[in-house]
Simulated assay, not measured.
Amino acid sequence: MCSCQQHSTSTAQAAAPAADALTFHVEDMSCGHCAGTIKGAIEARLPGTTVIADPGSKQVSVRGSSDHAAVKAAIAAAGYTPSPELID
């Protein structure tokens, strides 16, 4: 988990996840530094993906990969705890 001491909600507006995106809820993503770490970890492990990580909503949305396990593993390897986001 992040220790950057900048734990405020995101000032950027969260984009709604696309229908073809994998979306995870990451409760321990608390700031922009956390979001950048998660984004970098996923994009490094899965080249060609597009990642939107929003600490305000605690959602990570990934396009360009359908490998749920690989994305979850990348988030976990970065030190965070992903859980699938249920989208109706």
Score class of each variant (00 low, 15 high):
1 M>N: 15
1 M>I: 02
3 S>V: 02
4 C>D: 00
4 C>E: 00
5 Q>M: 15
12 A>I: 11
12 A>P: 14
12 A>V: 07
13 Q>P: 13
15 A>L: 15
15 A>S: 13
16 A>M: 03
19 A>D: 12
23 T>V: 04
23 T>L: 10
24 F>R: 00
26 V>K: 01
27 E>W: 07
27 E>P: 13
32 G>M: 12
32 G>K: 07
33 H>K: 04
33 H>R: 15
34 C>I: 11
36 G>R: 12
38 I>E: 01
39 K>F: 13
40 G>D: 11
40 G>N: 13
42 I>A: 02
43 E>N: 08
45 R>F: 09
45 R>A: 12
46 L>G: 01
47 P>M: 08
50 T>S: 10
52 I>K: 11
54 D>A: 03
54 D>F: 04
55 P>C: 04
56 G>S: 05
56 G>N: 10
58 K>N: 00
58 K>P: 03
59 Q>G: 06
60 V>T: 04
61 S>Y: 00
63 R>T: 14
67 D>E: 06
68 H>S: 01
68 H>V: 06
71 V>M: 08
71 V>T: 11
72 K>C: 07
73 A>C: 15
73 A>T: 09
76 A>E: 12
76 A>L: 15
77 A>N: 04
77 A>V: 10
77 A>T: 10
77 A>Q: 05
78 A>D: 09
78 A>Y: 13
78 A>K: 09
79 G>C: 06
79 G>W: 08
81 T>R: 05
82 P>E: 00
85 E>V: 04
